[in-house]
């Protein structure tokens, strides 16, 4: 089954964990979380939503050079299977 890209919405780099206790971190740490992004040329782990369908958010790993999609994950799978890198 083939679905159009327009059925989906992009929502940026995936697996950026919100700090557990924002009030305890510095402005710099908060700024890193808020705005700083990896923006890699190559493999990118990113979040999409099936917005014109089931409205589920999910994660894919896509190559930002040629748009090859390597794998996709539900949010739960992503949190378990993709290694968290500390920001």
């Amino acid at each position: 089954m083939h679905l159009e890209e327009e059925d989906f919405s992009y929502s940026g780099e995936a697996l950026i964990a919100r700090p557990n206790n924002p009030s305890s971190i510095s402005d710099d740490e908060w700024g890193d979380y808020l705005f700083m992004r990896k923006n890699p040329k190559g493999r990118h782990v990113e979040q999409w939503q099936h917005s014109s369908g089931c409205r589920k958010f999910f994660v894919i790993e896509r190559n930002t050079i040629d748009n090859t999609i390597y794998s996709s994950y539900t949010m739960i799978q992503a949190s378990k299977e993709i290694k968290h890198e500390t920001n």
């Binding site: 940026g12 705005f35 700083m36 992004r37 990896k38 923006n39 890699p40 040329k41 930002t64």
Partner: peptide, 18 residues
């Protein structure tokens, strides 16, 4: 558009998305 690639080399973080 390639700023993030250069920033990565210097371990500098940027809020850029290409």
């Amino acid at each position: 558009g390639h700023s993030s690639v250069l920033a990565e080399m210097a371990n500098v973080r940027l809020p850029i998305e290409s």
